[in-house]
């Protein structure tokens, strides 16, 4: 699914990396604990989180994650935004909660990481 499609179905506001919405992802992963992200994701994954500190961006950087979606109206802090721009990431904010956001994306065909068989 393309990032611009994700933006549209989530009524999301794009606050970084607007010029790179033509990237494609196959999976989504929701987490507020960064080691879970480091354990399970790959670079074809979009990260859903409610955590707004720079460690989220650092974690995404380590995993080559292209896009992060902040749920339930949360916005990353300024330090996070700067780091995201520096790393060419796309950042979106959606008003929906984590559960609703996940449901919308799943319905639209974005798979969970479980389907790769990596979650044990």
């Amino acid at each position: 699914m393309y990032l611009y499609e994700i933006r549209d179905i989530l009524d999301a506001e794009v606050i970084a990396g607007m010029s790179r919405m033509d990237r494609e992802v196959d999976f989504a992963f929701g987490a507020d604990l960064m080691s879970d992200v480091l354990a399970f994701v790959n670079e074809r994954t979009v990260l859903l989180t409610g955590l707004t500190n720079p460690q989220v961006i650092r974690t995404a950087e380590m995993m080559d994650i292209a896009a992060i979606i902040y749920v339930r109206g949360k916005r990353p802090d300024t330090a996070s935004l700067e780091l995201a721009e520096e790393n060419g990431m796309t950042i979106m904010c959606t008003p929906y909660t984590l559960y609703t956001t996940s449901g919308i994306l799943y319905n639209a065909g974005l798979k969970g990481i479980d389907e790769l068989g990596v979650v044990t």
Binding site: D32, L33, M34, S35, D36, L38, A39, L51, N53, Q55, V56, T59
Partner: peptide
């Protein structure tokens, strides 16, 4: 520390 996103107990296993 958990509120900052750490403490899953997955670091060393990772």
């Amino acid at each position: 520390v958990r509120e900052m996103g750490f403490g899953a107990g997955m670091g060393l296993p990772n």
